[in-house]
């Protein structure tokens, strides 16, 4: 199995401080990989680095067999490396559906001419992908609404839907669950693994241990910019390093159990101590 994304020695330096420090990370094709770590660990910086928003000081990133170090953000996105933003960054002036349409379609040089005479190129695959994205995020009823009319939680779902609409090969989710209420988190959490069925791999960042442990196939743990542990969810739960550095012995278990309650797909597991 090949890796859709592979970084080796990726380092991002801000003024003498390594926000990411020699990060080696791989996302196998068709798998669901998570990255966790406490606040300030460097998770979003990592995403910023692989999507091209922040320059890397050392190391490289290979996507689909191609070294993407020199590519601009939109070029990486066009190759299928699509992200969401923690701060959403929706297109407020476009309806929900328009937000997705923008991400879904690419343009040729003559597209504007076609647009002017109102004979736009319509792509069946793209239309289908968009419909699926709306469906899976439960946004069908607000497809024509403006993002500003929606609740915060639904806006986050729009952000995810927009990334899905781009038919990504690898979707990078940056804290998608933050700020969702119960119903919305259930929608999100329940559907996350379905993404894999649509020809994509998923990379999830969150600081919510429970969610990550429940949906990921493989997890990396980041602290102070360094990978301090990696493994299957089970291995991570039991890892002493992780517990000490990040979770603290008791808190981790509580979170893990909370995560169990949140997701549907988890197999019940004997946890640690009770709260």
């Amino acid at each position: 199995m090949s890796n859709i994304l592979e970084t080796s020695g990726l380092t991002v330096t801000f003024g003498g401080l390594n926000a990411c420090d020699k990060v080696d990370l791989a996302v196998p094709e068709g798998k669901f990989v998570g990255l966790i770590g406490p606040n300030g660990a460097g998770k979003t910086t990592f995403i910023d680095a692989i999507t091209g928003y922040v320059p890397t000081s050392a190391g490289n990133a290979v996507f689909s067999g191609e070294d993407i170090g020199e590519l601009k953000p939109h070029e990486r996105a066009q190759r299928g490396l699509v992200r969401t933003f923690q701060s959403l960054e929706l297109f407020e002036d476009l309806s929900v559906k328009d937000n997705l349409l923008v991400a879904g379609y690419d343009t040729r040089w003559y597209s504007f001419l076609l647009d002017m005479i109102y004979m736009p190129r319509k792509d069946k695959d793209v239309e289908e992908q968009i419909e699926w994205a709306l469906e899976i995020m439960g946004l069908n009823d607000v497809a024509d609404a403006m993002p500003s009319d929606l609740s915060h939680g639904r806006r986050k779902l729009v952000g995810v839907a927009r990334a899905l609409a781009a038919s990504p090969k690898l979707i990078l989710l940056d804290e998608p669950a933050a700020g969702l209420d119960t119903a919305e988190s259930q929608i999100l959490g329940g559907h996350l693994r379905e993404f894999l069925d649509h020809d994509m791999s998923v990379f999830l960042i969150d600081h919510d241990m429970g969610l990550v442990l429940s949906v990921c196939d493989y997890i990396y743990v980041l602290d102070f910019g360094k990978i301090i542990a990696e493994g299957t969810p089970q291995e991570i739960r039991e890892s002493d390093t992780v517990k000490k550095a990040y979770l603290g012995e008791e808190a981790g278990e509580i979170q893990a159990q909370a995560g169990e309650r949140m997701t549907y797909n988890i197999q019940g597991d004997q946890g640690g101590q009770d709260d």
Binding site: T51, F85, E89, D93, Y105, L114
Partner: peptide, 19 residues
């Protein structure tokens, strides 16, 4: 058309538009 949507996307948020 899509050109207009792209323009508006850029107007709204260049960073996200690139993404």
């Amino acid at each position: 058309g899509n050109t207009g949507r792209r323009f508006l996307a850029i107007r709204a948020n260049e960073r996200a538009a690139a993404a």
